[in-house]
Amino acid sequence: MIAGLNKVFESRVRLGIMAVLVVNDWVDHAVLKDLLQVTDGNLASHLAALDASKYVQVRKRFVGKRPNTSYKATSTGIKAFRAHLDAIDELLNKDLRQ
């Protein structure tokens, strides 16, 4: 049993999304897609999962005539992400000690 590891972050794409969002302010959908090298559909489904957990905030608006969707990590999301990283850290250190 692994304490502290967050089920929501079991996918590498979700980890990647959070990694980008914790060090940036609002990030466009296209920028995320470019950084993570994933398809629109794949990215959208992972973002929906993070949104359902209240880990990201979604903003839809028009820039000129184009629809623009961007995302931002919520404070809950940042806390959960940090806790998850700490858990990984703990796990790897425990392994070193044994």
Partner: peptide
Amino acid sequence: MTHNEHHQDLAHIRGLMERSTR
């Protein structure tokens, strides 16, 4: 998940943080 995979996750996260800000 193996420990090796965790190491890869961390490297992946670090790389993305770096690339998305610098």
